[in-house]
Design a binder for these strands. Structure first.
Lengths: 210, 210
DNA sequence: GGCCATACTAAACAACCGTTTTAAATGTTG
DNA sequence: CAACATTTAAAACGGTTGTTTAGTATGGCC
């Protein structure tokens, strides 16, 4: 078994288990037996559990922010007008696309993002902000430009409202979808849900502005 | 030290520590030393850690849902027209009021609510749904009535968007407020934030309907 | 083929976890 | 005051945690 095999097997198992149960609730022994590798391999390759957690986030956030930057570059270069709806669509489409093309589950990453915000892991928040803060600020800046005349403080609060609606809903997508399917017999696919989310989030951002 | 003293001292400490770090990350030893009681007191009075978690939620959800029901009764009896904004205001006002009058921190409960959704604690979700599901369904029903003509599936997705925006934002209120105060020098009080949240959430619920 | 860095493994480590047990203290009731 | 049930206390329980150690295997390079 080559090194990359062991490393990525650990990352694959950790990604799934962390998203399912959280970080503290997932032991290294569960991860390594799921991955079919030795317990000590985690500390050997990653150093510690904290660094493994960061590596899991790095593996999906780096391609994601890269693809988002490319998408924004493309639209800016093409001289397209960046509307609120257009920016949200870009964000969600890149989120679905850049991960789906690796054959991995987009909503698993939403769960991980939600955990990054809610779990008690100071190192994770610091890691993400220092590594991906620029991507976040660029997107926020473009979104603010699409909402001229809006008070900055109000804009940022609404940005957090929007992030909350997105992360919260998509990270519990399976559970919510199951409830609605049982109550109304109408299944909602993830793309359909995002099509519902875009206008709703845009309306929240735009209310009483312009 | 009387029994009620020990019990409520444990609940007080557990409430704060759970909200800060989550359930798994908070040990019974940390709780009991913070509360100044013996370690075994938790198992003696509550049975287990799971039941302590449920007791923490029960102590704030029961007064809250009771006050919300009274508020809704009052407005229905007065024949008031229940608008989307009015219902959201009732929800938030009761949330602030019923807890603040006990001298306890409202946003701490938002953090706990957020944890109840995101943490891996099946028993908690079951406990809350079975105990407070009726309150939730009544509020959701009144909100749906205030949005006539809206497709039920779309309504429920938007309800989750709204819950996500609320719980996510308010559970991280301290952190967000600190960032905005540093960047803009403009502090935002919790009531001010809720005044921003009501129209934003209402716009999200109402877009393209009526 | 010998060498060496890299990769892996099994075993043990100390620390911490929730829970239980046993005994002492306390309060209540007849 | 005596008898009882309730509450508190100290100590130990078995189990799990992340991490480390020491030794073995592996694969490329001179």
């Amino acid at each position: 078994m080559s090194q990359t095999d062991t490393v990525s097997r650990i990352l694959d198992a950790a990604e799934v288990l962390f998203a399912e149960r959280g970080f503290t609730e997932t032991s290294l022994r569960t991860i390594t037996t799921t991955a079919g590798v030795n317990l000590a391999a985690v500390n050997y390759h990653f150093g510690s559990k904290k660094e493994l957690i960061q590596a899991v986030f790095e593996r999906f956030l780096t391609p994601f922010t890269g693809a988002l930057a490319a998408e924004l570059d493309r639209r800016v270069a093409a001289g397209e007008a960046l509307t609120v709806e257009g920016l949200l669509e870009s964000l969600y489409r890149v989120g679905m696309g850049s991960l789906a093309e690796q054959g991995r589950d987009p909503q698993r990453f939403m769960r991980l993002l939600g955990l990054a915000y809610t779990q008690y892991q100071g190192h994770l928040r610091r890691f993400i902000v220092s590594r991906y803060g620029d991507s976040y600020r660029r997107f926020a800046g473009l979104l603010a430009q699409a909402l001229p005349g809006l008070d900055p403080v109000t804009f940022y609060w609404r940005l957090y409202f929007m992030l909350g609606a997105t992360i919260f809903t998509l990270s519990s997508y399976d559970a919510i979808e199951a409830i609605l399917r049982e109550d109304f017999g109408a299944p909602s696919s993830l793309p359909e849900t995002l099509e519902r989310l875009v206008p709703a989030a845009a309306a929240m951002l735009k209310v009483n502005s312009q």
